[in-house]
Simulated scan of single mutants.
Amino acid sequence: MESGSDGGRPSISDTELLRRIGQDLRSIYAEVIKQPLPPRIQATLALIDREQRLAEQPGRTLPY
């Protein structure tokens, strides 16, 4: 890589910069996905799932 006009730091192409940003984001998101869901979110998702299953039953309607 060549030195640019920004104080001697090597310049990189936009493509290489975007590739590095993508790698960093994938790494960060991978760590976030590994974390457990907070209990309130788990409870809310369970409620939504339960209501969807009830709504799929023939002849059943949701109470709202």
Rank of each mutant, 00 (worst) to 15 (best):
M1Y: 02
M1Q: 04
M1G: 11
E2T: 07
G4D: 07
G4W: 01
S5R: 08
S5A: 10
G7W: 12
G7A: 14
G7N: 05
G8P: 02
R9A: 08
R9M: 12
P10L: 04
S11C: 13
S11P: 06
S11E: 12
I12R: 00
I12C: 01
S13E: 01
S13C: 09
S13H: 00
D14K: 04
D14S: 07
E16N: 01
E16V: 13
L17M: 15
L17E: 13
L18H: 05
L18C: 11
R19S: 09
R19V: 06
R19N: 13
I21G: 00
G22V: 01
G22Y: 01
Q23G: 12
Q23P: 02
Q23R: 07
D24A: 03
D24F: 03
L25W: 10
L25R: 10
L25E: 14
R26H: 12
R26P: 01
S27M: 07
S27Y: 07
S27L: 05
S27C: 11
I28P: 00
Y29W: 11
A30G: 10
A30M: 06
A30K: 14
E31I: 00
E31N: 14
V32P: 00
V32S: 05
V32N: 03
I33A: 11
I33S: 10
I33W: 12
K34D: 01
K34E: 14
Q35T: 14
Q35E: 05
Q35S: 08
P36N: 09
P36Y: 08
L37D: 09
L37M: 09
L37C: 02
P39F: 02
P39L: 08
P39K: 14
P39T: 09
R40L: 10
R40A: 14
R40D: 13
I41S: 11
I41Q: 15
Q42C: 07
Q42P: 04
Q42D: 10
Q42T: 13
A43G: 09
T44D: 11
L45D: 03
L45H: 05
L45A: 04
L45W: 06
L45F: 06
A46G: 02
A46E: 15
L47P: 01
L47F: 01
I48A: 09
I48F: 07
I48L: 07
I48P: 00
D49H: 11
R50S: 09
E51Y: 13
E51P: 00
Q52M: 15
Q52G: 03
Q52H: 08
Q52E: 13
R53T: 02
R53A: 12
R53E: 13
R53Q: 08
L54A: 06
L54S: 12
A55S: 08
A55Y: 03
A55P: 01
E56D: 13
Q57K: 14
Q57N: 07
Q57Y: 05
P58L: 09
P58D: 10
G59K: 03
G59A: 06
G59E: 06
G59S: 10
G59Q: 02
G59V: 03
T61M: 11
T61P: 00
L62T: 10
L62S: 04
L62A: 14
L62N: 11
L62F: 04
P63G: 09
P63Y: 08
Y64T: 09
Y64P: 01
